[in-house]
Design a protein around this nucleic acid. Sequence first.
DNA 1: TTGTAAGCGTTATCAT
DNA 2: ATGATAACGCTTACAA
Lengths: 346, 346
Amino acid sequence: MQKQSTINDVARIAGVSKRTVSRVINGSLSVGESTRLKVEKVINELKYAPNAQARGLASSRSYLLGLIYDNPDALYLDDVQRGVLEVCSTLGYELVVHPCRYQSESLVNDCLRFMRRSKLDGVIVLPPVSESETLALALKESGSPYVRLSSVALDTQEHIVVSDDRAAAAEMARYFAQLGHEKIAFISGPQRYKSSTERMEGFQLGLSAYGVKIPAEMILEGNNTFETGIECAKQLLQRIKRPTAIFANNDQMAAAVLKVAYSLGIKVPEQLSVAGFDDNMLASRVTPSLTTIRRPVRQMALLATTKMIMSIEQNHKAAANVAAKVAPTLVVRESTGRCQSSDTEN
Amino acid sequence: MQKQSTINDVARIAGVSKRTVSRVINGSLSVGESTRLKVEKVINELKYAPNAQARGLASSRSYLLGLIYDNPDALYLDDVQRGVLEVCSTLGYELVVHPCRYQSESLVNDCLRFMRRSKLDGVIVLPPVSESETLALALKESGSPYVRLSSVALDTQEHIVVSDDRAAAAEMARYFAQLGHEKIAFISGPQRYKSSTERMEGFQLGLSAYGVKIPAEMILEGNNTFETGIECAKQLLQRIKRPTAIFANNDQMAAAVLKVAYSLGIKVPEQLSVAGFDDNMLASRVTPSLTTIRRPVRQMALLATTKMIMSIEQNHKAAANVAAKVAPTLVVRESTGRCQSSDTEN
DNA sequence: TTGTAAGCGTTATCAT
DNA sequence: ATGATAACGCTTACAA
């Protein structure tokens, strides 16, 4: 375990000042070609690597990005992480993960402390935490670069990447209507989340274009977990007049519908069409595989990280120019089909 | 965005030297009670928080832990992360995640650079990367605290947390045998991974206790993905003499078996018993739900992190005393049942 | 183009 | 028990 070599070692051996070594490290243009080569040679020989802490202390930069989330969905989180890290690693940043409790009163303080403690250069905030305006405000006031992922354009271009969940849900509505479904149910996510209301409204609007309306009793609220999906599905499917199609706010709950339908002997898609939202791993694993909406999660993460780093590196204009909107797309699989209900009454 | 207050501000206002403030922060015993109170009061008033970088630079500590992994499935990774972070947050550490490529030649250098760059206090290494002895050796030589998660006791107590996959697989074998199965197949993971060979050997050994042997053609190798699971399952189930029970190296592949069985009209568990390994989310979501082995992943993460931090804080003996072995357990669900095959020939 | 000197905010050393 | 003062390894004025 030999001691790490420092900038001083490099300077001494290369016979230049440490300031010059620093310039080489940071790619300054004002370094003579021969000097640069000489220094680089020594750097390689010594396997010198700058100390990030010292660097940070001097320049008030840490090359550390934070990821703030409160998300029960492991698959979503993993997708995001992969996307973020892809950009991070090529640009020399590292990622510090920070789960937190959205509902907690101490959310804002907790997050700010997190940023200060590790002197993060910026944070990426995932839904639903990203919907907290108080947090966003605090971040803005503290001058910390941040980017939010959301289904609504809650912030300026520089600070957000949104997925148009509303339009995607409308597309699902269109698809359902074209399959001839009229008795349609919707299992929503928590109404306090923007993503939930966006999807619900998009779906309703989409249906209304076809003259289809979802009666109140056909709209149930789950909390995006498989378990609540089971509850809602039971309520919906044990009725006399059960729906011929169910759209769930996410794949977890849609998978739950499949499960309940199976236990009730209801055939999918023959007697019941089911669709979810996310297109996570689950969607293709279950039987029948789920028709769903694919969220380009990884792409959002890439965009957010790029935006983030541009902000950090002072290209605010460039940051605002990175695409800020992505469009989820319909993925048709086995769980949906034409409405075959014989009773055409209403 | 007001400037952060520093230790100097605290010292000045409290009317003591910064060394004393430092002592208070670090809970030194040699500080007078009245002095301590005075300083703590100022700290609170100023909302002072020590700068981690400066602290790290001076003490060569970063309060940063690293998590090194290569594409374990998202659910496993998430479980680990939650466990690690649970300990981290209570002990004042942050977690930096670092995916890498196990197969890459630059694995060792990549990981070492990662550690140096961010001056990590220690790293937790997940399988299969944890099985790389060259990496472990490099880590040891560089004097970096590290803890490995594995299915085999590859290292000293201080550096490892193992799950006894072999015993768990043997338990599954016992369960299968007691259900009366004799024509049993196994879909293994990549044989270059210890976890794969452990599970396979455990399963075979367990069966042999009941006089059951798996013929070579009933052992197929997948790579732990759903897709290869599909391939293997097709090969196994389209035979004339197909097995009455299949044990897969993980839940992903077991779910694939379910899918193939369904498409072939083979009833599970009536005509075919299926079991997986992991007990991740998938296991309870699919239909029928999967009998599997529950790996106490979160618990392993907790133990590893505790061990890690004890090592960092110089309690090597204590670190070695943290439990290093956990036992996965059999979880019986709907996908397995008594062997009902009519033909008893071999 | 290159170098000198002064920080950055802590902890460590050694006095007192 | 407390305090000067020197590191820690780097960047940033400011010169030269």
